[in-house]
Design a protein around this nucleic acid. Structure first.
Length: 569
DNA sequence: GCCGTTTTCGGCCCGACTGTTTTCAGTCG
């Protein structure tokens, strides 16, 4: 059993207990332990074997017993028992914006609502507004919430698909007869969400691969099976499509199935215009002779253009750019020299400063900025000026011991609802990196919220604006900001905009990142990490930058320290 | 439920916003 699966049981247990009205601190204990387990690098099973379960932070006697029970039986009695009392659909209802555990419980107990469809009907019958604690306005919000959930139905965060792809490819490669396996589709193109995972494999005989994949523990059921392809649904709610072709056709099938459709159609037109025919069998002349193509680079070359990386294959002008030789030289993960947005256990993260240094050095970074929350964000244990000064003193002392690495002082400072900053300029000017961002007052008017962020940009001490639109993919719409106006203000004030790499944020997105580049606004790709594993999310931020056509010089954390300091001044 | 330079029970994370019940419970970050 994977750590994430065990963690999930505890998360669901916490949700169920919350609906039951259980003690807040008990629920929080389960949530915390679930988070801790999800971010462990070692399998919990292994930790159990070494009898070190209680060494995991937040695991005491009770939770230790529960983990043992899960490892032994694959499930948790208490969890199953609660699920019999509270249907899973109630948990889904609890996820809707404006609905917490109390309202979800009332809906279930008073109206017997157990799923989104039932809730929608009750709203349409105007039954919900009559309940205590509900209103006509809330009914409206509920409908919008259901709409949002429906829209994302079947679409899953890229990180989930990438992780699953890596695991399945690893698995399929070990099946005898497999000559190659690659991911394709939107997962390979690094699109921010994906509908299903496409895999392409090369083998003379497809059957063993199809059968093997169908028996993989992550697979729930076979949706469709043909002689050389299979479509399966997984326990993660993502369906997987595996296509097995001969080694000769592998590169062409992989290429076609990577898409996008528009990109591929454009390439077919280009092929046609020079007397060639492109399809999943190969690239042929009018006489029917196949051209010798060994990889995608060859393929693009044969069509008279430079290689187009999957991230750019959108069918939006990249083919023309490649023909003209004007494709950007996209930024790579290896260009990144440091992470400028990291939280520590001084505020709401699990990370020790020492762990951050260690991991960032392993990644080959030459610097990293410690940017905890500021004082007004009480829930995150934001730092008042005294603690901030203490932390910066510690960072300066650490730096004396480091030769090839520099820890930068910084803060992720709240831009308060009235547009004021959370510290005076005298404090801000002492820091290397000042990030401004908002965590409250999301529902201000477009004018107010735009003005609020603009005002922060106008302050010379503010270097970077983090997660500027505030969206959480599939969970929360962006705040109502005038992005165009903010991009212009950023250009004018030379404020750097963050591409936040957290897979559920990816904020700003690729469209805005492209606009920023066009306006001459510089970007910074940061992880906003709160635990060790999240420091690895940099790849997702870089993917946004690549899809936006960004080059290393567009991104400040590709600079060496000396040049970076000049930009941050 | 966990934790403790408190050894055994008390503390653990707070404040703004929302809609409306006009005084506060519920939600959210």
């Amino acid at each position: 059993m994977q750590n994430i699966e065990i963690a999930w049981i505890f998360t669901e247990l916490a949700d169920l207990l919350e609906i039951q009205g259980e003690d807040f601190y008990k629920i929080r204990a389960y949530r915390r332990v679930a988070e801790a387990m999800a971010s462990l690098e070692e399998p919990i099973e292994e930790i159990h074997r070494r009898r070190l379960l209680t060494k995991i932070p937040g695991v005491g006697k009770v939770i230790e017993e529960k983990i043992k029970e899960i490892l032994k039986t694959g499930k948790l009695k208490k969890h199953q028992e609660l699920l019999r009392q509270i249907p899973r659909g109630v948990l889904e209802i609890k996820q809707l914006p404006g609905i917490g555990s109390n309202r979800a419980r009332i809906l279930y107990q008073e109206l017997g609502i157990t799923d989104l469809e039932g809730l929608k009907q009750a709203v349409e019958n105007r039954q919900v507004r009559k309940l205590k604690g509900f209103s006509a306005k809330l009914e409206w919000d509920i409908l919008n919430g259901i709409e949002m959930v429906r829209n994302r139905q079947g679409r899953i965060r890229l990180s989930v698909s990438r992780e699953l792809a890596a695991e399945l490819i690893d698995f399929l490669k070990k099946i005898p007869g497999t000559l190659g396996v690659k991911m394709a589709g939107s997962t390979r193109r690094w699109q921010e969400t994906v509908g299903d995972l496409d895999l392409v494999a090369a083998a003379e005989d497809p059957a063993p691969l199809l059968t093997a994949l169908a028996s993989h523990p992550r697979m729930k059921e076979v949706i469709e099976r043909q002689s050389n392809r299979i479509r399966l649904s997984t326990w993660w709610g993502l369906s997987v499509d595996l296509q097995v072709v001969s080694p000769k056709e592998f590169i062409f099938t992989l290429h076609r199935s990577t898409g996008s459709k528009d990109h591929y159609a454009r390439l077919q037109e280009i092929a046609d215009s020079i007397g060639l025919q492109l399809n999943h069998h190969g690239l042929r002349t009018e006489q029917g002779d196949f051209l010798g193509i060994n990889n995608e680079e060859d393929l693009y070359q044969a069509l008279g253009m430079k290689y187009i990386p999957p991230e750019l294959r959108k069918g939006s002008g990249e083919v023309e750019a490649a023909l003209k030789g004007s494709l950007p030289s996209l930024i790579e993960v290896s260009d990144i020299k440091g992470d400028l947005h990291i939280h520590t256990n001084w505020s709401d993260s699990a990370l020790e400063i020492a762990d951050i240094i260690k991991r960032c050095r392993e990644k080959g970074y030459s610097y990293a900025a410690i940017t905890d929350h500021s004082q007004s964000l009480k829930i995150a244990n934001g730092l008042d000026p005294t603690r901030l000064a203490q932390q910066h003193q510690i960072i300066r002392e650490q730096n004396k011991k480091l030769e090839d690495f520099t820890l930068l002082t910084g803060v992720e400072m709240d831009i308060l609802p009235n547009g004021e900053l959370d510290y005076p300029d005298e404090i801000l000017e002492q820091m290397d990196v000042v990030i401004g961002s908002i965590h409250t007052g999301f529902r201000q008017s477009k004018k107010e919220i735009t003005r609020r962020i603009s005002k922060a940009m106008e302050n010379e001490q503010v270097d970077i604006i983090a997660h500027m639109t505030g969206r959480l993919i599939g969970r929360r719409e962006p705040y109502d900001v005038d992005v165009e106006e903010l991009l212009e203000t950023a250009a004018k004030t030379q404020t750097i905009l963050e591409i936040n790499s957290a897979p559920d944020r990816l904020d700003i997105n690729e469209v805005y990142a492209k606009q920023a580049k066009d306006l001459g606004v510089k970007l910074s790709i940061n992880t906003d990490a709160h635990d060790l594993m999240r420091l690895d999310d940099m790849v997702y931020g870089v993917a946004v930058a690549r899809r936006a056509g960004l080059e290393p010089q567009d991104v400040i954390n590709t600079l060496n320290l000396e040049d970076l300091r000049k930009v941050l001044h």
